[in-house]
């Protein structure tokens, strides 16, 4: 492989000083180029992150004033259904009188609500993702007064906890904050250090 002898032929070993200066130049240029390539990569990666209009729907405000006692509505948040139920005193009592140790996924009712009468859970069965029945008046609620998932028979109670069936976990509670008596912001946990347990 005949090379034209040039000062920078790949394997040339010039004097020490010349070599280090030249090598430094090559190294510096290569490094700057690499920085350039890495910086260029970021926009291509970040563009797949949620866009501004998607982020704008990260939280939704729901008006609760029209909901009657015993009634439930379904709100859409981040593409998921959110069950908001205005619980009757009986339903609250039922939820609180259960021995937590008996539950497949132990959790107290108090830990799952901020205001006792408002139960807010994500309406997706924790088994394989179907939407449980129980929102509409007259629909089947299962044996525990909460929700019944018709896909594989999971049953949830008035606190949204799994009681029987294949689902492994309670219905998930989204982060939410009460803005006032009748408006709740779903998607953001309260800023107070009390966490979910503190009252709004």
């Amino acid at each position: 492989m005949a090379h034209e002898p040039g000062a920078a032929a790949a394997a040339a070993h010039a004097t020490g000083e010349e070599t280090t200066r030249r090598d430094f130049l090559f190294l510096a240029t290569g490094a700057v180029g690499a920085i350039g390539v890495a910086s260029v990569a970021w926009p291509f990666i970040d563009q797949m992150n949620p866009a501004a209009d998607t982020l704008a729907l990260k939280e939704i405000e729901v008006d609760l004033s029209a909901i009657e006692v015993g009634q439930a509505i379904t709100a859409k948040w981040q593409g998921k259904p959110v069950f908001i139920r205005y619980r009757t005193p009986e339903e609250i009592e039922e939820a609180r009188s259960v021995d937590v140790a008996d539950l497949p996924d132990p959790a107290t009712d108090e830990s799952r609500v901020q205001e006792a009468q408002w139960l807010i859970v994500i309406g997706i069965c924790t088994h394989l993702g179907c939407i449980p029945q129980g929102q509409l008046p007259g629909s089947a609620r299962g044996d525990y007064g909460g929700w019944l998932c018709s896909c594989h028979g999971s049953q949830y109670d008035t606190s949204g906890r799994i009681r029987s069936g294949p689902a492994p976990q309670n219905l998930h509670v989204p982060p939410y904050t009460f803005l006032n008596e009748t408006r709740v912001l779903i998607g953001q946990a309260p800023e107070t250090t009390g966490g979910e347990n503190g009252s709004a």
């Binding site: 034209e4 040039g6 000062a7 920078a8 030249r22 130049l25 510096a28 240029t29 700057v32």
Partner: peptide, 17 residues
């Protein structure tokens, strides 16, 4: 900066030619 460095490299590489 990158172009200036690249120019310096080019001149260095081609110096003997």
């Amino acid at each position: 900066v990158l172009t200036a460095l690249a120019y310096a490299v080019k001149r260095k590489v081609w110096a003997g030619v």
